[in-house]
Design a protein around this nucleic acid. Structure first.
Lengths: 201, 201, 201, 201
DNA sequence: GATGAATGAGCCTTCATTCAT
DNA sequence: TATGAATGAAGGCTCATTCAT
């Protein structure tokens, strides 16, 4: 007996999130007022509050959305099955994504979330969950490399994976600050790092 | 012929900044009210506004203070003059500092500033200035290593330095989120990275 | 040729009023939202607004309903035709009704209406109309008593009746506040009052 | 070291309460907005909230104020020490107060509080506390009358006192609704009631 | 300089009401 | 008629900032 199809509900939700993300990327969570989102979405306050009970819920929903987005970037695979090549491909995808105009908006919101995670338990959980995936993907690739003999056996896969993830987080930061570094140069450095993983002798 | 000795001025300023930093670390810039800082500092609104015309000025001053602090960490030197050893010592200092309880307060504020840099031109300038120092110190060390033949000549020193700095930024993030990783493990991964810099053959 | 039988209309109306009264008794008029009534009645906003154009209309309808209810309590009669006995019977009925759990809900709404009467002309009219009936019933009984010689002739029937009605209003107030007084005790005091009406010498 | 004398604080508080009471009397608690009180008091929102953290606190403070006011009315005494005469004097004072234009404002607020007591534990406590004083004063007078032999010994003093208090509450209600009854008539009825207290035979 | 009560713009949220389906 | 998502005016409250003392 619902008069409106559930799809409409979801669509409306997405409209709101879209508007919110746009505002958040430009002004940050706390500088963005609900009025801004109302203006951007061309919906009413009441409508927004029907979908998200509080502003914080809206922020959390944005966090969840981002979380989902990020997973896609990790699904890159090297057809030949060489784990280091896969790792490189992932790095390349991330860095190139980072250097597209479009990627920036999302990244700005990500950085906002990183700071918000200091205060909100919920967002901290989202953000750390969002890191666990990449760390395990990367460490799995490193272990695979060790098994295949292309990665030094003495390396602790998880710690090294965490370091690589940290590295990309730092790249995101530098990027959203407008640091003028080249995707190619960054990828070059990453290549050098991967090259260094090869077993000695 | 100032009625109040400049030292008193500076001392008062520092009191205020100390209180502000403490509040900012706990609640973030935008969740912290001037009232919070008044409470913490046990000074009055008027007094605070005599020293800092706006809340934003206070935030910027905090940013400046942090900037100064960070420089100290880079002054580590290896007595033997081995640049990779120096690099390792710097990394170790940073990671250990990061794992001290006390270090966290400052880092939390740093992460706040990283997000704030998205909106404030002034803070963006502080933050990127704060990165340029480390990048040039590290790249200088790498070049020195290349000169000494302990670092692969094909590596682009600046890009690699930027990557290392990014890495440490990521470590900071993960740390303030309470990620349970070990300083020793992280240092181990960093060691492996440094080891990989050695020229092949 | 109405498409819906009038009974259905009335039934729906009653459903709504029933739900509204329940909410009003618990939370008062102004703390009760239409949403609360929607929830309680399991009807929709649109449906409720089809029957009552505004929230105030709903409140007025509740007032009207109460008005009707109260009349029933006055219809008590003493078979022997002794007016003081009738008066006592009425008092007893009211007091006992007041001390039934069920009676409280209605009384709470009544007290709400008493306050609302300060602002709404319509409700003030309802409430004062609601008092006029009892006053005239009681004063008629007193006059009858005077005629029969069981009530002191010097008493001004209308004023005394008004006082008796005031008394019961006060009892209602004290009751809804949860004052722990006994129906029997209150009736005892009322008896004493009635006894005092007898002519001296 | 307070720059402002505590008296000023109290004076400001009273200004606010005065404005609030005036608004509440006219429009009721829930129809009165903080803006109304701001307008009336010619103070700012912030200032009001410095003295009363929430609107409910303001309402409670009004309740407290009323509570204090009412006590004064009970202090009437009959110089000759006749308890029934004292009772009559109290009744007269109340009824006359009720029929002064000025008394009405306070009474309207009282009736608001009576309804509010249904929802607020705090106000319910105020209101019931406010009733206990009168009940005990009146019952004490009745007992005194019994001791002196001017009041029938069979009467339960407390129950009768409660009934008298209820009566006056009802008079207040009828008065604020604009019922056109005379103070003198009401007093006459009260006199009759008191006369009826005399022992028979 | 220091104090802290006062200011008031503006924020988040609510809720009576409407209207396309 | 019934539905319930959408509307938007307005409410309570906050907080950066000012200024008389």
């Amino acid at each position: 007996m619902p008069k409106v199809k559930p799809e409409t509900m979801t669509a409306r939700r997405d409209e709101i999130l879209e508007a919110a993300e746009s505002c958040f990327a430009r002004q940050g969570f706390h500088q963005t007022t609900i009025q801004d989102i109302i203006r951007k979405s061309k919906l009413s306050a009441g409508c927004i509050y029907n979908h998200f009970p509080t502003k914080d819920d809206l922020i959390e929903a944005i966090g969840e959305k981002r979380h989902a987005n990020d997973k896609a970037l990790l699904s890159v695979k090297d057809p030949a099955g060489n784990p280091l090549r896969t790792l490189r491909a992932i790095g390349r995808t991330l860095l190139e994504d980072l250097h597209k105009k479009d990627g920036l908006r999302t990244r700005r919101v990500a950085v906002e979330l990183w700071a918000e995670a200091l205060r909100s338990e919920t967002i901290r959980a989202q953000v750390t969950r969002g890191i666990r995936g990449p760390i395990s993907v990367v460490s799995e690739l490193l272990r695979e490399g060790q098994r295949l003999g292309v990665v030094d056996k003495k390396i602790d896969a998880v710690s090294f994976a965490r370091m690589i993830v940290a590295m990309f987080q730092g790249f995101v930061l530098q990027r959203v600050w407008g640091e003028a570094y080249d995707a190619a140069d960054a990828l070059g450095a990453f290549d050098a790092l991967l090259a260094g993983l090869a077993p000695r002798r």
